[in-house]
Amino acid sequence: MHKLIEQARQSGRHLLEHEASALLQEYGLFTVPCILARTSEEAEHAAVTIGFPVVLKIVSPQIIHKSEAGGVKVNLVSKEEVHQAFAEIMTRAKSYDQTAELMGVLVTAFLPDGTEVILGMNRDAQFGPVLMFGLGGVFVEVFKDVSFKLLPISEEDAHEMIDEIKGRVILYGARGQKPKDIASIAKALVNLSRLVEENPEINEIDLNPTVVFEDKIAILDARVLI
């Protein structure tokens, strides 16, 4: 068993976001650089290290839906904004769940607009682990425009997954836009498949959002449930 999973299991919780990032990185799945900050001062220091603008996100084993808890602040451009955001996140998180253990915030780079996609894995009662891919936002929530494959998948399978969604035209470059980095999405799906195969303790993975640019992809938020 992977030591990060074992640790989380022993403390009876899911993987924390920075742990999930570390695990994903071992499988070639790169989340945007992030630093755990326990205090407002640490957050400022992390923001300077990463470079402005930055995003602050709450870190708490009890809070899975961070936005819902008011635990996410984006596009922070100065030290002052970082301090203010830190204080606000802590207050809101406390009122969202008074029993929640607040470990601090995760500071990450705020990236320019790209195309949001979702990569995920869920366990089906009948068929076991199933990979999911789709465009983010309204495409997944309203149109349910997602594709599924049973594990394990090859790179060819990954490309099929991408081609199966109706919104694929957006990735291939619609309305005069340049095509997005589809090869990197495919690689990420294959890596995700390998990660799940080798770590059967994982019940659910949500890389949401993952942002695709013309030359790279960036995983902005990773949830690994065990």
Partner: peptide, 15 residues
Amino acid sequence: ALAGSDKIYDAAFAK
């Protein structure tokens, strides 16, 4: 019988 999600059946049949 257990009725699963239809999209998952599609994926299973393709597999």
